[in-house]
Simulated scan of single mutants.
Amino acid sequence: MILVTGATGTIGRHVLRQLADDTGPSAGAGGVRVLVRDPVRLDPAAARAAEVVTGDYGDEGALERALRGVRRALLVTTQVTGEHDVRFLDAARAAGVEQVVKLSAAAVTDPDADDLITAWQRRSEALLRDSGLEWTLLRPRSFMSNCLSWAPSVRSEQVVRALYGSSLNASVDPRDVAEVAVRALTEDGHGGRAHLLTGPEAISAAGQTAELARLLGVPLRLEELTAGQARAAMLRRYPEPVVEALLHSAQRQRAGAKAGVTSTVHDLTGRPARSFARWAEDHLDAFAVPATPAAR
């Protein structure tokens, strides 16, 4: 039995879909289980191939039900206190889980990354390594799908707004991260390993804007935000400590800390990591600029 947490999130939903494709509906509920707060948000086709347990990390009974009979589990947490990691790992040990595959981040490998979010990720990794369970760490660079936050302004104004528009990031397609996760959950040989995952090249917001413009066939303008403008925009969405962590991360990117490319996706899957152009082409509908009356 494999347990997937975070099954409605950026990585977990792709993991669940890929596992469902591998097992198929004929496998019934015996192979895959999900722990989810809101089952309505699950991909319907993928959910039909899995057993669904409704609950969260704060629900001891739900954790016990979700982990019963599980051999390997994907752990995705977002609470920077680390409390969710502690609760899950305690319950996993008690249930006899053999291996936990943990979604972390590439920033943990950068000694200059000392922000709130990276410090929490390092603590979470340490909790898993010290848990006595077999572990695998997934350390992706930024997700290409973060660009979906630009979609409203692209559609309405043909504008992309970004901080440090020329800074490079070897961002990765979430589907590639999910495929590595699925391999770690279904294959032997990943125990005690940390997989640093990037795309095939480092690209800037300016480069991503140009690629989207080419694919859409419309001119797009990059409007570079100041640090103050970016802070104000983020504060409308996140608490101040998180905003400061994100700004620190952006400064490290500006200094070149996120431009390194790895071959890990290719090494583990046997095919090259997807490019940003491929990701954008597959998600172009989200950015499609409405046609003008004259063009209809």
Rank of each mutant, 00 (worst) to 15 (best):
M1A: 14
L3M: 13
V4N: 01
G6I: 10
G12Y: 01
L16T: 15
P25M: 02
G31D: 14
V34L: 11
L35A: 14
P44A: 12
A47N: 07
A47K: 09
T54F: 04
T54R: 14
G55T: 08
D56M: 09
D56R: 07
Y57C: 03
G58C: 02
R68Y: 07
R71L: 08
G82N: 04
D90L: 09
A94R: 15
A94W: 10
E98N: 04
Q99M: 05
V100R: 00
S104N: 13
V108P: 01
T109K: 05
D114V: 13
D114E: 09
A119M: 04
Q121A: 03
A126N: 06
P140N: 10
S142K: 11
F143E: 00
N146G: 07
S156Y: 01
Q158P: 06
V159L: 05
R161N: 01
A162L: 03
G165L: 00
A170N: 08
P174Y: 14
P174V: 12
V177Q: 04
V182G: 01
R183V: 02
A184G: 12
S204G: 06
A213M: 07
R214I: 06
R221P: 05
L222V: 03
E224D: 05
A227W: 15
Q229T: 14
A230F: 08
M234R: 02
Y238H: 11
L247E: 03
R252N: 06
Q253R: 08
R254C: 01
A257L: 08
K258E: 00
D267T: 13
L268S: 08
L268G: 08
G270K: 13
A273Q: 00
A273P: 00
F276V: 03
A277C: 07
W279S: 02
A280V: 05
E281L: 12
E281W: 15
D282P: 09
H283L: 05
